[in-house]
């Protein structure tokens, strides 16, 4: 089974706060692959909102995303896409 690993920097002003975290978890849960996100110190399950909140990823945090499963490639691409777009918050950076 493919394992896909990608890296990205959190671009939006308030980082992974409640709403982006929810979007991320929702997206992760739509794939079968096991998806883990790491920062410098922590590796967490991207399908758990509590875990994603615990990352406390602020703007500029470097994240590593590891997807493991049949749909790993699609999952990784989608996750990167969501984060790159700043969770739709880039235009009006208001929490």
């Amino acid at each position: 089974m493919p394992i896909v690993k990608k890296e990205i920097e959190v671009p939006n002003k308030y980082g992974l706060h409640a709403r982006p975290a929810m979007q991320l978890v929702e997206l992760a849960n739509s794939y079968q692959s096991k998806i883990e996100v790491s920062n410098d110190t922590l590796t967490i399950d991207a399908k758990s909102i509590m875990s994603v909140m615990r990352l406390a990823a602020a703007k500029g945090t470097k994240l590593t995303i590891v997807c493991d499963g049949e749909d790993a490639e699609e999952a990784a691409t989608a996750m990167i896409g969501l984060i790159t777009a700043g969770f739709g918050e880039m235009e009006s950076p208001q929490a």
């Binding site: 709403r19 929810m22 929702e26 909102i49 875990s51």
Partner: peptide
Amino acid sequence: AGIFDFHISLLEDRSL
């Protein structure tokens, strides 16, 4: 209303 959706996602959290 999003605040309550957030609460729902907390409740649904499998690790929790």
